[in-house]
Design a protein around this nucleic acid. Structure first.
Length: 164
DNA sequence: CGCTTTTGACCTGCGC
DNA sequence: GCGCAGGTCAAAAGCG
């Protein structure tokens, strides 16, 4: 845990992250190889815990794959920063912060937009997507960073139960 | 022709 | 109890 383990960090305690996310490195994701991300810790607890993982990319075309064994990412993306986010709500979801001009990032799945809402503290609307495949309880919300509009925060909720 | 997008309305939870 | 914010639904339209 020296130079390559800059990603590894301790789990931040549930302090007051009232309106600001705790910028801590995630211990749930590990950078393996060149373009592959895998869950370093127990993926089960990763889903069960009320912890969201925030990943900052600088590329738009990022293919994400949420499998049982972990999360696999493809695409020519250079990692900027990885941080864990603790939510107040106990819900299994991952938040990915991506630097992109477009909110619609192709992650290999087909999404159906079912809502758009304006966030109070942000000048940009939030988009609500859901997996087009029936039986897939996966939801996805996409909104821009209120501080940096050039960043797109994609929050996945649930797990895909179908291939691709 | 099927499916996605769109936009407003509706519902629910929480705070005051 | 009311109001606000966030989230979801649904009808109509648009596009491939």
């Amino acid at each position: 845990m020296t130079d390559k383990n800059e990603i590894t960090a301790d789990s931040s305690s549930d302090s007051d992250f009232t309106n600001q996310w705790s910028i801590e490195l995630s211990e749930y994701l590990k950078f393996d190889g060149n373009n592959e991300w895998v869950v370093d810790d127990d993926p089960g607890s990763f889903v069960s815990e009320h912890v969201s993982t925030q990943v900052v990319y600088d590329q738009a075309n990022v293919v994400s794959d949420f499998g049982e064994g972990g999360i696999h990412f493809e695409g020519s993306s250079s990692t900027r920063e990885i941080s864990s986010v603790e939510e107040k709500k106990v819900r299994k979801k991952f938040s990915f912060k991506t630097k992109s001009e477009v909110e619609i990032l192709d992650d290999g799945y087909k999404w159906r937009k079912y809502g758009k809402k304006m966030v109070k503290n942000s000048p940009n609307p939030r988009h609500y997507y859901r997996c087009s495949v029936e039986g897939c309880p996966v939801k996805k919300t996409v909104d821009r960073d209120r501080d940096d509009s050039r960043y797109v925060i994609t929050t996945y909720e649930g797990t895909h139960t179908h291939p691709r």
